[in-house]
Design a protein around this nucleic acid. Structure first.
Length: 954
RNA sequence: GCCCGGGUGGCGGAACUGGUAGACGCGCUGGAUUCAAAAUCCUGUUCUGGUAACGGAGUGUGGGUUCGAUUCCCACCCCGGGUACCA
C-alpha cells in the first residue's frame, strides 16, 4: 500500500486527542522550556498558508525540546476581543461573542489539522470573563501604583501617601508630568496661584479625601486625564500612537485628528529608560530592537528657560544642542502653544490668528506630507537670551510639534537645517558660532570643531561646551540637563463595546474602582453596538439592570484597547484555571519567562512594548519573578502571494496572449491604432490556482468566471504562459492559497515540511506550490524504504552495516546541530539526503529507520507515529529520547584532500583521515601530479588545513 | 534624510568559527521501465570555449587584508523593512 497520509493523519490526530498526549504539568524534576506563538485574532477569513509558518516552526522546536527531555510548555489561545467582530455585530446585530465563538471553532479545526502539539487544556481567550477578570485586576494594580524614581520601580500608592503625610513632596521623586499642577483646577485648593506642584506635610494634612484623590490621580500609573488623543471619526474611537500610520488609522486607513478628551492612560513613560536598557539583554532581531529604540526615542540635552520681554512668564525649550545656545537668533513655538494668545502683540494678532487658522485646517497628514513648505508668523513678542540678555524674536511655525518636548524650540540657524531654512525664508539673522565653518549656504550640524562668538563657550568643542553650559544653567537655576523621550503615555480607553470593561464607576465625575473581589465586571447586554445619540460609547446604552455590578452615578463606558489582554496572556497559560490569582507564584516561578517567542514583526512598537511594560510592572510589584517576558524571539516572514497575470489584447477583449509570445503576437498582428506593445495589453489578475507554475489551464480559465467563457488564446496550443506579480495575499488579487486544499492533496506532514523547506523562517517569500511535490516524494520514498513492493511493512533487523550507521549518524549530527541553531530549512535537506542515501544502499534496516523516525517526528509527527508503531513500539514517538550521535561513524577512514596550487584546485588525493599535516604535505609533494604543477620549482610555502585543503604556494 | 536587514544558477535556497561555491528541492536534458500514460529509477544541469580531454570567468560594483574571501575591512550601487519637520 502506498503512503496513505489521509488515513494516517486522521488516526493519529484522534489518538493524540484521546490520549491527551500533549498534556503538560509542572514537574520540578525536569528542566522547563517555554515555546510560545503570538496568539491569533480569530478573524472570519480563517487561516491561509502564511499563518501557520511560525506555528509550524515553534511546534518543531517544542517537539524537539520534548525529545531532549525538557518539560515543554507550548500553549495556544485566542486574542478574541477586537474590531471586526464588533463591526460585524453593528451590521447584523449578532452578539460579537457568537461570531467570535464560531471563528475560534474554525481556527481550532484548522490548527488541529496541522498536528500541533498544543496543550489545549491551557487555552486562554482574552474575551472570556474568567480571563479578563485578571486583566481588570491588573488595571486595578496599575491604578494603585506610582513610580518611584528613587527606587526605580513601581510601588503601591500607599507608600506615596505615607511620604506625603510625613514630609509632603519633599524627597518624593516620582515619574510624573512635570507640569501636572498647571492642569489642576486650583480654585478647589488652598495652594494659591503660584502653586508649583510642591507642598508640605501640613498642606497635605488639611486636604480632604477628594482633594487628595485629585492629586494622587496625577501620580498613578493608570490615570484619568484630559489628553490630546488621536480621534478617528470613522471608527468612532481614539487610537494609540502605534495604531496610527502616516496620520491614518492602521485599520481601515481613516483620517485621524487631534482632540482633547478625558481618557484613561497608562504611564508607560515611567518605564522608558528601563524599556530601552532592557533591550540589550534580549536575544531579539536587531531590527525589532532598533524599532523599539526609535519608538522610545531617547534624546539627551537640556532644558533652557528664556524669560519673556515685557510679559510675565517664560518659555522653556528643550534642546539636544545646548552648546549652540549663543547661536540662537529666534524662538519658534508650536501654533497650539498655550503662550501664543497671551504674548502676541496687537499689531500681529491678525497675522497670527490667520496662520493658526490655516494650520488647523490642514490635517495631520497634510502637515506631515508637506515638509518642504516653510511657513510661520511673528508674534511681535520677544524673549531674552539667558546669558547675553539680547532680545530674541518669538515666532510660531508648524514645524514645531506641540506634542514633543515643550512645544517650543530655540532656533539656531547656523546649526540646524530646519532653523536655517526658516531664517532664510523670513530674513532672520544667521549668526555663525562655528570656527572656520561656512554657514552661508547651509547649516553645520556636525558635532566636531570649535565654537566661536559664544561668550564663555568660545574655543570649546561640543562635549566640553555642552558640559559647561549645562553647569552654568543649573548654577543660575535657568535650566538643567535633561533626557527627553519621544514615547508618550499610552491611551488606554476605547469607545468600543467588544473589549474589557473598566472596573470603574463614577461618583459625581470622580472615578472609583471596584474592589478586587467584585471582579469580573462582565460586559452588559446592549441593544445596538453603536455610540449613543449624544456620542457616548456603546456601553452607555446599557440600562442599569443590565450591569452585573452597578455603583455610583454611572459605570465607566469606555473599554480597554485590544492590547490589554495580550500584554500578559503568556502568564495565564501557566495557570489558566486559577480563580484565586492571576497566576500562582509557584507556577510562574517554575515556568519563568518565555524561552522562545515566535511571531510577526508588525507588533514591534505595539504588543511587544506593552507586554514588556506590564511584565516590568508586575515584576516591580512582586507578582512575578522576572522583568522581561520574552528572552528570545524569532519573527517569521510574511508569505506573499504570487498573483497570476494574464494579458488581454485591448483591441480584442476576448483574446489572451501567452506571456512569452507578446512580441511575436504584436509582430504578427500589428495594432491598427499604432499602439506600442506596452499599451497593447491589459494586465488582469486571475486565480493562481488556474496556473501550474507558469502554465495556465485554458479550460479552467473559461470555466472560472463568465467573462472568460469565450476566451480565445494565442497561441491556441502548446504551453500558455502567464506572468507573475509578488504581493500580499488577498482575495482581491485571487492569489490566496488555502492550506486545507494542500492538506487534502498532500497531507499535513508534507505541508509542514514544505513550509519549513521554503527557506529561512525569518524571510518573507512568495508562496509557490510547485516545489511541494519534492517534499511529498521524500515522505513517499521513506515509506517505501519500510515497505516492500506490495506495500507490506518489511524491515530487516540485522545489525546495521558501517555504511548504514554512517548515514544515520551524519544525519543525526546535522539535524541536531541545525535545530540547535534554529535552522529549520536545512534540517529537511539533511533528512532528504539520508533517505536518498539509504535508497541507494537499498537499506531498510530497522535500527537505522528507528533513528530516522525520531529525527523526523518534529517535522512530520503523524508519519513518524505511524512508522514508530509499525516498528513495534507501544510508546509514542514523542516520548522517545533524542538519539545521540557517535563520532566514530562521522568520518571515513580516508579523506579526500583537494590540492590547490596558488589557490586553484588541481587534483585530489585520498589519504588516511588521521594523518598529520606534515605527513599530508610530504605525501602530496611526492605525487606525480604535484611534480607536474611544480615544474621543478620548490614551493614557497605549503598550507595544510587539517581535513580541509592543501594549498601549495609557488 | 536617518536606522536596520539583504543582494549567490532558470527558480526557492545551502555553504555553522575565512578552507572543494552552488548542498537539498523545483524546473529543464537525456535514458530505463511501459502497448501507452501515470508512477518510479538512473544521468546531466553556474556561465562560457571545446566533440572531448581540458581551459577561462564567476557569489551586486570597485578596491583592500590573506597562502586562500560568499564570509573580514573601506567606498559605492540596488532591493526590502522601519522611521521622520523629534528641536
Amino acid at each position: 500500500m502506498e503512503y496513505n497520509f489521509r488515513e494516517i493523519e486522521e488516526k493519529w490526530r484522534k489518538h493524540w486527542a484521546e490520549q491527551h498526549t500533549y498534556h503538560v504539568s509542572e514537574d520540578p524534576a525536569k528542566e522547563k522550556y517555554y515555546v510560545l506563538d503570538m496568539f491569533p485574532y480569530p478573524s472570519g477569513a480563517g487561516l491561509h498558508v502564511g499563518h501557520p509558518l511560525g506555528y509550524i516552526a515553534s511546534d518543531i522546536i517544542a517537539r524537539y525540546k520534548r525529545h531532549r527531555g525538557y518539560n515543554v510548555l507550548h500553549p495556544m489561545g485566542f486574542d478574541s476581543f477586537g474590531l471586526p467582530a464588533e463591526q460585524y455585530a453593528i451590521q447584523t446585530g449578532q452578539h460579537p461573542a457568537i461570531t467570535t465563538e464560531q471563528n475560534i471553532a474554525r481556527y481550532r479545526e484548522q490548527l488541529d489539522r496541522l498536528g500541533f502539539n498544543y496543550d489545549w487544556s491551557r487555552e486562554v481567550r482574552t474575551s472570556d470573563p474568567a480571563y479578563y477578570r485578571w486583566t481588570q485586576w491588573i488595571f486595578i494594580q496599575l491604578y494603585n501604583s506610582w513610580y518611584n524614581k528613587a527606587t526605580n520601580r513601581a510601588e503601591h500608592i500607599d507608600s506615596l501617601i505615607a511620604s506625603f503625610a510625613f514630609n509632603g513632596t519633599y524627597n518624593v521623586d516620582a515619574a510624573i508630568d512635570r507640569e501636572w499642577y498647571k492642569r489642576m483646577d486650583l480654585s478647589r485648593f488652598h495652594f494659591g496661584e503660584h502653586f508649583s506642584g510642591e507642598f508640605t506635610a501640613t498642606d497635605w494634612d488639611v486636604l480632604n479625601d477628594e482633594q487628595k484623590g485629585i492629586i494622587l490621580q496625577h501620580y498613578r500609573l493608570a490615570y484619568l486625564a484630559d489628553t490630546w488623543v488621536n480621534w478617528c471619526e470613522a471608527l468612532g474611537t481614539v487610537l494609540a500612537n502605534d495604531e496610527v500610520k502616516d496620520g491614518l488609522s492602521e485599520r481601515g486607513g481613516h483620517p485621524v485628528e487631534q482632540r482633547l478628551m478625558k481618557q484613561w492612560s497608562l504611564r508607560i513613560t515611567a518605564y522608558a529608560d528601563r524599556l530601552l536598557s532592557g533591550l540589550d539583554t534580549l536575544d531579539w532581531s536587531e531590527s525589532i530592537k532598533e524599532m523599539q529604540r526609535n519608538w522610545i526615542g531617547r534624546s539627551q540635552g537640556a532644558m533652557v528657560r528664556f524669560m519673556l520681554h515685557g510679559h510675565n512668564g517664560h518659555i522653556d525649550v528643550f534642546t539636544t544642542r545646548p552648546d549652540t545656545l549663543f547661536g540662537v537668533s529666534f524662538i519658534t513655538l508650536a501654533p497650539e502653544h498655550e503662550l501664543v494668545k497671551r504674548i502676541t502683540s496687537p499689531d500681529h494678532e491678525a497675522d497670527v490668528a490667520e496662520y493658526i487658522r490655516q494650520t488647523m485646517l490642514r490635517t495631520e497628514r497634510d502637515r506631515q506630507s508637506d515638509v518642504k513648505h516653510i511657513s510661520g508668523a511673528f508674534t511681535g513678542a520677544y524673549a531674552l537670551h539667558p546669558f547675553t540678555g539680547e532680545k530674541i524674536p518669538v515666532w510660531i511655525g508648524d514645524y514645531v510639534l506641540a506634542g514633543y518636548g515643550t512645544g517650543a524650540v530655540m532656533a539656531v540657524p547656523a546649526g540646524d537645517q530646519r532653523d536655517f531654512l526658516f531664517a532664510k525664508h523670513f530674513g532672520l539673522p544667521i549668526p555663525n558660532i562655528f570656527d572656520g565653518v561656512d554657514v552661508s549656504a547651509q547649516a553645520y550640524a556636525e558635532k566636531t570643531g570649535k565654537l566661536m562668538n559664544s561668550g564663555f563657550l568660545t574655543g570649546l568643542d561640543v562635549a566640553r561646551a555642552t558640559a559647561e553650559v549645562i553647569a552654568e544653567l543649573e548654577r543660575k537655576r535657568i535650566g538643567y540637563g535633561r533626557i527627553n523621550y519621544r514615547l508618550r503615555d499610552a491611551i488606554f480607553s476605547r469607545q468600543r463595546y467588544w473589549g474589557e470593561p473598566f472596573p470603574v464607576y463614577y461618583e459625581s465625575d470622580t472615578p472609583r474602582l471596584l474592589s478586587e473581589n467584585e471582579l469580573p465586571l462582565t460586559l452588559p447586554k446592549i441593544d445596538k453596538y453603536l455610540p449613543t445619540e449624544n456620542g457616548e460609547p456603546p456601553l452607555a446604552r446599557a440600562r442599569r439592570e443590565d450591569w452585573t455590578i452597578y455603583h455610583g452615578d454611572r459605570m465607566e463606558y469606555n473599554t480597554m484597547p485590544g492590547w490589554a489582554g495580550s500584554s500578559w496572556y503568556f502568564l495565564r497559560y501557566m495557570d489558566p484555571h486559577n480563580e484565586a490569582n492571576m497566576v500562582s507564584p509557584d507556577r510562574v516561578k517554575y515556568w519563568g519567562a518565555v524561552d522562545l517567542y515566535m511571531g510577526g514583526a508588525e507588533h514591534a512598537t505595539g504588543h511587544l512594548l506593552y507586554a514588556r511594560f506590564w511584565t516590568k510592572f508586575l515584576s516591580d510589584r512582586g507578582y512575578i519573578p522576572f522583568d522581561e517576558p520574552f528572552k528570545k524571539m524569532i519573527n517569521q516572514g510574511m508569505i506573499l502571494g504570487k498573483s497570476c497575470i494574464l494579458l488581454r489584447d485591448t483591441e480584442h477583449p476576448d483574446l489572451y496572449v501567452s506571456f512569452d509570445k507578446q512580441e511575436a503576437y504584436v509582430a504578427a498582428f500589428p495594432s491598427g491604432k499604432g499602439k506600442s506593445a506596452d499599451d497593447r495589453f491589459q494586465h488582469l489578475r486571475v486565480d493562481v490556482n488556474l496556473a501550474d507554475g507558469d502554465e495556465l489551464h485554458r479550460e479552467g480559465l473559461r470555466k472560472w468566471q463568465p467573462e472568460f467563457s469565450n476566451a480565445k488564446f494565442y497561441p491556441d496550443d502548446g504551453t500558455f504562459r502567464c506572468g507573475h506579480e509578488v504581493e500580499k495575499m488577498s482575495k482581491r488579487w485571487h492569489n490566496v492559497v488555502d492550506p486545507e486544499v494542500l492538506c487534502d492533496q498532500y497531507g499535513a506532514d508534507t505541508m509542514r515540511m514544505y513550509e519549513m523547506f521554503l527557506g529561512p523562517v525569518e524571510q518573507s517569500k512568495p508562496w509557490d506550490t510547485k516545489g511541494i511535490s519534492g517534499v511529498h516524494n521524500f515522505l513517499r520514498k521513506l515509506w517505501r524504504l519500510a515497505h516492500d513492493k506490495e506495500g507490506i511493512f518489511s524491515v530487516n533487523d540485522a545489525t546495521p552495516t558501517r555504511e548504514e550507521l554512517q548515514v544515520l549518524h551524519r544525519t543525526l549530527k546535522r539535524v541536531t546541530d541545525d535545530l540547535e541553531r534554529l535552522s529549520w530549512n536545512t534540517v529537511v535537506s539533511a533528512l532528504m539526503i539520508a533517505v536518498n542515501e539509504l535508497t541507494a544502499l537499498n537499506s531498510s534496516n530497522k535500527t537505522v529507520l528507528e533513528g530516522i523516525c525520531v529525527l523526523l517526528s518534529p517535522y512530520a509527527p503523524h508519519f513518524a507515529e505511524e512508522l514508530w508503531s509499525k516498528l513495534g513500539h507501544n510508546s509514542s514517538v514523542t516520548a522517545q529520547a533524542w538519539p545521540v550521535y557517535d563520532m566514530q561513524y562521522l568520518e571515513d577512514t580516508n579523506f579526500e584532500y583537494p590540492v590547490s596550487f596558488n589557490g586553484k584546485t588541481r587534483f585530489k588525493i585520498s589519504l588516511p583521515a588521521d594523518m598529520l599535516p606534515a605527513d599530508v604535505e610530504r605525501a602530496v609533494l611526492d605525487t606525480a601530479e604535484a611534480a607536474r604543477y611544480l615544474e621543478g620549482k620548490t614551493p614557497k610555502k605549503v598550507v595544510v588545513v587539517p581535513k580541509r585543503i592543501v594549498n601549495v604556494v609557488m
